[in-house]
Nucleic acid binder design. Structure first.
Lengths: 237, 237
DNA sequence: CTCGAACTGTACTGTACGTTACAGTACATA
DNA sequence: TATGTACTGTAACGTACAGTACAGTTCGAG
């Protein structure tokens, strides 16, 4: 009894490695991957509460005890999984940043296409859904997601607009607000709809149509009228 | 034992009234209200799984048996609560629709202010959060929310824009897309941020600033430039 | 006031879950 | 090949929960 009661204090291995960390052997490494993959599938489709450790082990192999050795407890596995998924989703997003080729029209269209395709996939939707549902459980991960995801994306577009404003004939008073407005127009209701309704994927031609419309609306509203008589008729089709 | 085993078949009262219905007496009416109120508070703050019947009864008074008499089971109470909250949130929204006074600027600003304040309150956020988290449990309610809420709002704005396009000097090729873009700009990241992050309320002056910015951006992009002799800038017929 | 139905309180049942303990096994290392 | 240890499988524990049964109480109708 006494020996049992110390088990919590002895939760660190002799050489200082925390038990709630990465695996200690090469076998554990494989099991850790399997558990994280199973977690990414189960937690995200069934939610935290409805996913049982038995489910996870049945999917990943191994045993429940291993979960405790590798992740401390159920919440630890969930948290580790979310950190990873978070990173993966953010990588999708960062792909969309920063190429500044050709005209503003072209640059914005290209960014927006990349961005929209990046956030409308199933994984992103699922991760954000869990983030919303369990944000109370993992406020720090939610915060990091927001800062590294949406906030950074807006800042990236704002930087681009700022650079453009200097010599690009655009009237941009508040780059952050403009960037936010542009991104909002591009996304529209699609993302929220995907969170609330079981979504069939958005057809790619609708994505393109929406992006071109948003860019046109954005530019024609923001383009300085003093750009000489001819006016930049953003010609297409 | 034999008598007990028939209890499931006897789940309907002798006179044919299903147990999962509205209360049969005046006392039950009060208890039903109390239970729905408790549910609106607890389910929405703690989620479906983490809210226990004991919690609900402790908050609402009465007894667990009453829940089964009035709502059938836990999910029935949840569903009834969501239907009501849904309706309340949608009422907020419908307040924002359809006044068409003065200039387009003024009309859009007024609508947007009303709309944004309507969706940025705590109740709306909480209800949508639950809708996202439990959309699998109540797909029909989620669908109804979407159709009666966002979809109807967009349609309302689109109708307004359509009416304006006829004689208002605005170039509106696709009223639905324009309405969607406008609303998206107005909302921006605010709502999604409120879902993911524990939100402090948005200060009212920020709401106003955002709305005015969105309206200006929207109109300057959509206003037909007929003053400048000819208006060839409009790309397509 | 009486009566019966509607509601309440409580105790109980069965079950499912997270967590732990432990004995057995497979594996990396030397 | 020998050895210690990192992982596995299983069983068990305690708890917490939804749902049920039932006797007691309240309240409105006649």
């Amino acid at each position: 009894m006494v020996k049992g009661s110390v088990s919590r204090e002895a939760w660190v291995t002799p050489d200082g490695e925390a038990a709630t960390g990465r695996p200690v052997g090469p076998r554990g490494e494989a099991r850790r991957r399997a558990l994280l993959d199973a977690a990414a599938r189960l937690f995200v489709t069934k939610g935290f509460e409805k996913t049982t450790l038995r489910d996870l082990v049945e999917t990943a192999g191994g045993s429940r005890a291993t979960i405790y050795e590798l992740f401390g407890d159920k919440a630890g596995l969930f948290r580790a999984m979310m950190e990873e998924s978070n990173r993966r989703v953010l990588d999708h997003l960062s792909d969309a940043r920063s190429p500044l080729p050709a005209s503003p029209d072209e640059a914005l269209v290209r960014f927006a296409l990349h961005f929209l395709r990046g956030i409308l996939n199933d994984e992103t939707r699922a991760v954000v859904r869990v983030l919303v549902a369990e944000s109370g459980r993992i406020p720090d991960i939610a915060e990091e997601f927001w800062q590294s995801g949406p906030a950074t994306t807006v800042r990236g577009v704002a930087d681009y607009l700022r650079a453009l404003a200097d010599g690009g004939g655009l009237r941009i008073e508040d780059p952050e607000a403009s960037a936010q407005a542009f991104i909002s127009m591009v996304v529209g209701e699609l993302f929220m709809k995907g969170l609330i309704l079981p979504g069939r994927p958005v057809p790619d031609d609708e994505i393109e149509r929406r992006v071109r419309y948003a860019v046109r609306l954005f530019l024609d509203g923001i383009r300085a009228p003093e750009a000489a008589g001819g006016g930049p008729a953003s010609g297409r089709s």
